[in-house]
Design a binder for these strands. Structure first.
Lengths: 79, 79
DNA sequence: CTGTGACTTTTAGTCCGTA
DNA sequence: GTACGGACTAAAAGTCACA
């Protein structure tokens, strides 16, 4: 049962990093905006931990993405 | 920033309840399958709490839905 | 600017029973 | 079969020092 989870978590890490890059934000800047700690962003982007729905929502808001975009297989090159 | 979260959490509650009903599962049965506690399912369906990504994945698996379907505004009538 | 380990505080998630 | 509360344990949230 952990395979889905592992895959999703890994995808989440990638998506956040990409979206953040597209916004031209540093981990620090993202952390500040999302009211999270710099190192916590680092952890998530490394696929460490198991973020809660609340954290996902915070990040989604700042990254101007939907929670789906964070968890899913989004990020098509350029529509 | 809490509005998105509140909305999503509420939607999550509804979606799980509906999907569970469609599967003909009781909260107990769902909890058992997902390896979660009976009362925790109850909490989630009442919009209480802040489930982790792992829990979302577990539930999605049992309900044969995608995590997106749980968090989003899914449940289209019949594709 | 980011990765990482160690750490403390808060909360998720469990287990009990009651209605 | 479900809502709800209290007490408890595991884990996430959040911080710091250092590479």
């Amino acid at each position: 049962m952990g395979r889905d989870y592992d895959q999703i978590r890994k995808q989440l890490a990638v998506n956040i990093r990409v979206l953040r890059g597209q916004k031209g934000l540093s981990q620090e800047a993202l952390a500040l905006s999302a009211d999270l700690d710099r190192t916590y962003i680092s952890q998530i982007e490394r696929g460490v931990g198991n973020p809660s729905l609340l954290v996902l929502c915070k990040l989604a808001t700042i990254l101007e993405a939907d929670v789906n975009d964070l968890v899913g297989v989004p990020l098509p090159p350029q529509a």
